[in-house]
Design a protein around this nucleic acid. Structure first.
Lengths: 109, 109
DNA sequence: TTTTTCGATTTGATTTGCAAACTAGTTTAA
DNA sequence: TTAAACTAGTTTGCAAATCAAATCGAAAAA
């Protein structure tokens, strides 16, 4: 397939900037609390919450709601193996597309 | 700024997959006809048309409507210097963020 | 003449992404 | 003790974005 066609069809669940940031942060941390993740990404709580839900639905993340002294909620988030694999695959695909694009430029005219 | 915060704030005009494909194709071609660009990117005419309009509004592209024998429309599209600069800046920023993210992983825990 | 094709643009439905409003509980202050 | 303010997150409402289908104006074919 033409590299530009592949580019136009990138995995949007991961490609979206806020979610790419979340996934990258979680890959580095392997586990993080909600508020820490908010600090890392600079997202509002609302947006962080809804992006996390989407990633959870895709089984890229595992979200765990704990309560400190049974009272204060504390949510911890982990990236799953599937999530890590998807992130790696995303970068790999992007790199490959860029490489092919360069080649294409030289050989096709 | 934290790399993840930068990631969450990438230039969305260029970041969108369809437009990234268009911009990349045009950087390789420097000039292309509408239908050729459609073939390269695999987009429908409708989507190609509307994405081109957005990129034109941002002055990343120059769109020229010619008529063959005064009748058949033939639209040619060129990337502007501003567009090329924006695309280069986009990749550069993305590469930098990825690099910093790797560093961050090693040094912050 | 009508019908189909060609090169696009516009329209309309759906989906997103964001911020503001809200929830459920806790701590502080009066 | 009761109200105000804070904490940790979720839900809601809506503008903007995306995508495919419908449309457009002209030309060629039947």
């Amino acid at each position: 397939m033409m590299p530009f066609q592949e580019m136009a069809k990138l995995n949007k669940l991961i490609h979206e900037p806020a979610r790419l940031a979340i996934m990258s942060a979680l890959e580095a941390c392997s586990m993080a609390e909600f508020l820490f993740l908010q600090e890392l990404t600079g997202l509002t709580k609302g947006n962080l919450s809804s992006h996390l839900s989407k990633l959870e639905r895709a089984e890229y993340l595992l979200i765990n709601k704990n309560y400190i002294r049974k009272k204060i909620p504390q949510t911890t988030i982990q990236i799953t193996h599937e999530g890590e694999a998807a992130l790696r695959a995303y970068w790999k695909q992007l790199d490959r597309i860029r490489e092919v694009t360069k080649q294409w430029q030289k050989t096709s005219f």
